[in-house]
């Protein structure tokens, strides 16, 4: 493989042969050592060797979808990183957030990103959103052996589906099982608390800023009860990463926007540490919000 990469000599026959549009398949034939799935581990548990990423939340709103992640990576009781990025744009209309073994997860997302771009360049048109979600499934399935030794990778995949004109959310299990979620979802160690928070705060008619606010509240709640999830870091001004995808494409919300929203969340929590109150009973319809009737 080194000869192919250093740029001397003609292109190897395998490069010129017609065949797959999948970068992963091409790698598995030509350079299997580059694939995360191509490695065999010695027996034993390896879960404590490397940092773990924690909580990822996603929610759909009319016209788009939002993906957010906290910034902490942990190794046992240690904080391995306080400013790790776990939310990645995978192409113009999709993004993935990762929980689990950080090193493997980042590598998997990097491969997934090349996979999507490679297909788009070779075929001349991008994969469908379902096609992308299935490719990610295959990558996770390839990691099952390592997952059983404690090196699991569990992403949350979101995208804007141009065919359906709406945002969609996919969650996965370690065997590569792919599940489409409605409305909102969370994965990672703090996901239990984030999901509870999302359940009470989510409304289907949120706008982009509202969705960002709900994501920040959910991540705050996750950090409040899960030691492995990082809350807003006020002294270092480190806040969650929020990535929004609409029909115009995807973008990560600028630092000043997120820090403004985070300051609002924190100001609210100063008065009520447990966060916004949900109404006790829903009257008349889903949209009543506990206000005066």
């Amino acid at each position: 493989m080194t000869g192919e990469l250093t740029g001397h000599g003609r292109l190897p026959a395998a490069f010129l042969s017609p065949g797959t549009s999948s970068f992963t398949e091409f790698l598995s034939r030509e350079a299997p050592d580059l694939l995360p799935a191509g490695r065999a581990l010695p027996p034993g548990q390896a879960g404590d060797l490397a940092p773990h990423g924690t909580t990822i939340v996603a929610l759909a709103f009319p016209g788009g979808v939002l993906l957010g992640g906290d910034r902490r990576a942990t190794m046992g009781n240690l904080i391995a990183s306080r400013d790790i990025e776990k939310v990645f744009s995978t192409d113009e209309y999709s993004a993935a957030g990762i929980a689990g073994t950080a090193g493997l997860a980042v590598e998997m997302v990097r491969l997934f990103r090349v996979e999507l771009e490679h297909y788009e360049k070779i075929e001349g048109s991008p994969l469908s959103l379902d096609g992308k979600a299935n490719r990610l499934s295959a990558l996770i399935r390839g990691n099952l052996g390592m997952a059983m030794q404690g090196l699991a990778v569990v992403p949350l995949f979101v995208g804007y589906d141009l065919a359906h004109a709406g945002g969609r959310i996919f969650s996965y299990d370690v065997t590569g099982g792919r599940y489409e979620e409605t409305g909102y979802h969370a994965v990672g160690s703090g996901s239990l608390f984030a999901r509870g928070s999302l359940k009470k705060l989510y409304r289907p008619d949120l706008d982009e800023t509202g969705a960002a606010m709900v994501a920040l509240q959910a991540l705050y709640d996750a950090a409040d009860d899960d030691s492995a999830t990082g809350g807003p870091d006020l002294t270092r001004r480190i806040f969650p990463i929020l990535h929004v995808i609409t029909a115009e494409g995807g973008h990560t919300l600028a630092d000043d926007i997120v820090s403004d929203l985070a300051d609002q969340v924190i100001a609210g929590r100063m008065g009520r540490p447990d966060g916004p109150v949900a109404p006790l009973a829903v009257r008349g319809g889903a949209d009543s919000e506990g206000g005066a009737s």
Binding site: E4, L5, L11, F15, L16, P18, F23, F26, L27, E30, A31, L34, R110, L111, V114, E117, H118, K121, I122
Partner: peptide, 14 residues
């Protein structure tokens, strides 16, 4: 196609 493969492979490994 060979060029896309070469470029993607190089970009992925480096």
């Amino acid at each position: 196609i060979a060029g896309v493969r070469l470029a993607d492979m190089r970009g992925y490994s480096y």
